[in-house]
Write a protein that binds this DNA or RNA. Sequence first.
DNA 1: GGCAAGATCATTCTTTTGGGTGACGCATCG
DNA 2: CGATGCGTCACCCAAAAGAATGATCTTGCC
Lengths: 156, 156
Amino acid sequence: MTRSTVLHVLVFGALGGVLIAALKWLEYRWLVATHATELYAGAVAILFAAIGLVLGRKLTRPQIEIREIPVEVPIPMAAAAGFTRDEQRQAQLGLTAREIDMLEQMAAGLSNREIAARSFVSENTVKTHVSRIYEKLDARRRTQAVQRAREWRLIA
Amino acid sequence: MTRSTVLHVLVFGALGGVLIAALKWLEYRWLVATHATELYAGAVAILFAAIGLVLGRKLTRPQIEIREIPVEVPIPMAAAAGFTRDEQRQAQLGLTAREIDMLEQMAAGLSNREIAARSFVSENTVKTHVSRIYEKLDARRRTQAVQRAREWRLIA
DNA sequence: GGCAAGATCATTCTTTTGGGTGACGCATCG
DNA sequence: CGATGCGTCACCCAAAAGAATGATCTTGCC
């Protein structure tokens, strides 16, 4: 194939393309001329359908879809792990800090001996404290004292 | 006013109505004849606008409007004042209902004698139960058993 | 300085608890 | 029917807890 041959092919191709385009253009003109009303109606239809669509979206109230979204709610400290000693009542009952201390260890399930060891005092001392605690809490037993102390928010 | 007068009024009124209606009809015919295209276009416009509207409402996804509405949520019993026994662990430890029963009374601060009286059994029986509880809870003291039972949610 | 409160310790005595063992009755289950 | 689990009860012994009393020491306060 020579260069001129290639050129010819390209020229004829281009001419063919132009010809087809021209024919299509004429056909289009004829279509527009003969079906003007239908085209007009079509255009109006499309336009108004679009307008209707937009209006339909914009002007109608948004549909409310009730959906429950789980939300993390911070649990109030006081209910979770927090504890506040009722110092009011503690003072009112005349419980000393040391006694509250003993009380906590009693509640932890420690024996007098164990408390004595941990507190670096004699077992007798612990017994004295414990006895006074009973008096103040009006308890007769260890478990009762612990229960009362809990109930009255003197210990956690 | 005589009957005939009334009749005349009615007849003239009717005739007038018919005349007006006729004139309107002619006017309408003329309007339709001269503005056929506009009317056609108008009708199409209205129709398609309606179609667009309907489609816009029906075929599009509903607009979701996320609106957070604070809702009063009942605090779960378990967290508020309620208590749920860890029956899992209870079974796992092999604690019987009777033992839990005793455990609760121990926690209430009752002595073996008191528990015996309230449960209508002998003090010895209570002691047996209590001893078994200690074994199962791996406790050596009353207060310790109560503490463990609380910790493990076996009692309130 | 002296008083009151709080913490410490001891001694004595009683009560309660806890450990160990054995036994009986009653269901349930394989 | 025998095994097992549960609830019941008893007896003995040891340990822990509780009651009562008295004493010392420190600290804060008037």
